[in-house]
Structures are given as structure tokens and as C-alpha cells.
């Protein structure tokens, strides 16, 4: 796991850590079953408050990215996790709704949006 904190970004420390762990899980750098450092280890390494790392892990657990096994530590949940799937579904719906709003402003009808989506999908599969 890699965490780099900026003191000048204006983004709260807990959010920086949370986003970095999330993106490493989504990109597959952190895999299902990987053990995360303990709350106190992470706080010590980054020289931050234990309460800050507690907040990060609590929120990641709520969003379905990790699971806290009492007495054993925190583990990454894989793509198979129902919670993570649910979370990604919500994420997709939110982005699609934004896309639809933009399409409406641009005067595109729904079949044109469908076409654009199909095209993007083909491009993705070529990659």
C-alpha cells in the first residue's frame, strides 16, 4: 500500500488516505484478502492521529472496500463483495445521470446517447 499526503492540497488528511486506498483497490494494486496496516501502525508511519486512521477505515468499511475482522485486522474485500458492487452501481448511476443531464443541455436525444455509449464501450474493449 502506498500513501502520499500533501499538506498543501486543502483536502483533509483522512480524505486523501481514503481516496488513495480506494483507487488502489479499484486498480487491483491492492487485492482481495490483502491485509491493511493496523490503525496504530498507519498512524505512526504517517505521523497522524489514530482517530484519523480510524475514520478512514470506518468509512472504507461502510462503503464496502474493506472488512474489519475483530482481533485480526482489516482486509481488502474483492470485486466479489456485494457491498463494493452496490457502491460501484451507485457510482455508475450517478455518472450516467450526470451524462444524461449534459446530453439534455446539448440537445441530444436518448438514442444518440445510446450510440455514444456503445462507441465508448467498443473503444474500451479494443484497449
Amino acid at each position: 500500500m502506498k500513501i502520499t499526503l500533501s499538506n498543501f492540497s486543502g483536502i483533509p488528511i483522512y480524505e486523501q488516505i481514503k481516496e488513495q486506498i480506494k483507487s488502489q483497490i479499484l486498480s487491483g494494486e491492492l487485492k482481495e484478502g490483502d491485509k491493511l496496516p493496523s490503525l496504530r501502525e498507519l498512524a505512526r508511519d504517517l505521523r497522524i492521529s489514530v482517530l484519523t486512521t480510524t475514520r478512514v477505515y470506518t468509512e472504507l468499511e461502510k462503503e464496502g472496500f474493506i472488512t474489519n475482522i475483530q482481533g485480526r485486522g482489516c482486509y481488502v474485500l474483492g470485486e466479489g463483495s456485494e457491498l463494493l458492487k452496490e457502491h460501484m452501481l451507485r457510482e455508475m448511476e450517478r455518472n450516467l445521470s450526470d451524462a444524461l443531464k449534459a446530453a439534455k443541455i446539448a440537445g441530444l436525444n436518448i438514442s444518440e446517447v445510446h450510440q455514444a455509449l456503445d462507441l465508448m464501450n467498443e473503444d474500451k474493449q479494443d484497449e
Binding site: I13, S49, L51, R55
Partner: peptide, 21 residues
């Protein structure tokens, strides 16, 4: 960064005590 809690007193009075954030 490192403190979990803060207690702040001024002129003999408590101004704040609680989580640093």
C-alpha cells in the same frame, strides 16, 4: 497532525476539549 485530542485553556478557563479535527 499527531494529536488525537485537544484541550485548549485560556486565562484559567476551558475553551475547548475534544477531538482535534
Amino acid at each position: 497532525k499527531i494529536a488525537d485530542y485537544i484541550t485548549f485553556i485560556n486565562n484559567g478557563r476551558l475553551i475547548f476539549t475534544g477531538i482535534k479535527d
